[in-house]
Simulated assay, not measured.
Amino acid sequence: MANVTFHQDPVTLLGKEVKEGDQAPNFTVLSNDLNEVTLHDYKGKIKLISVVPSIDTGVCAEQTKRFNDAAKKLDNVQVITISMDLPFAQKRWKTVNEVKDLEILSDHRDGNFGENYGVLIKELRLLARSIFVVDSDDKVSYVEYVEEVSNHPDYDKALDAAKQAK
Rank of each mutant, 00 (worst) to 15 (best):
M1Q: 14
M1R: 03
A2W: 00
V4R: 09
Q8H: 12
D9M: 12
V11Y: 02
K16P: 10
K16A: 05
A24G: 07
A24M: 03
F27P: 02
V29H: 06
L30V: 06
L34V: 14
N35R: 15
T38D: 05
L39P: 00
L39Y: 01
H40T: 11
D41S: 01
D41L: 10
G44S: 02
L48E: 03
L48W: 02
S50G: 12
V51I: 12
S54W: 10
D56A: 13
G58V: 15
G58C: 06
V59G: 02
E62V: 15
Q63V: 06
Q63T: 08
K65L: 15
R66Q: 10
N68Q: 13
K73E: 10
K73L: 11
K73D: 12
Q78W: 10
M84R: 08
M84F: 08
D85S: 09
P87A: 04
A89G: 09
W93E: 10
W93C: 03
K94F: 10
K94R: 06
V99N: 06
L102V: 02
E103F: 06
I104D: 00
I104N: 04
H108I: 08
H108G: 13
D110Q: 14
D110E: 11
G111E: 00
G111Q: 06
N112K: 04
N112T: 15
G114L: 04
Y117F: 10
G118R: 07
V119F: 00
V119C: 09
S130Y: 05
F132T: 11
F132N: 07
V133S: 07
V134E: 00
D138A: 14
K139V: 10
V140P: 10
Y142A: 08
E144M: 07
Y145T: 01
E148G: 07
V149G: 09
D154H: 01
D154T: 11
D154I: 01
Y155C: 04
D156Y: 04
K157E: 14
A158T: 03
L159M: 12
D160Q: 13
K163E: 14
K163S: 05
Q164W: 04
Q164K: 15
Q164H: 14
A165S: 04
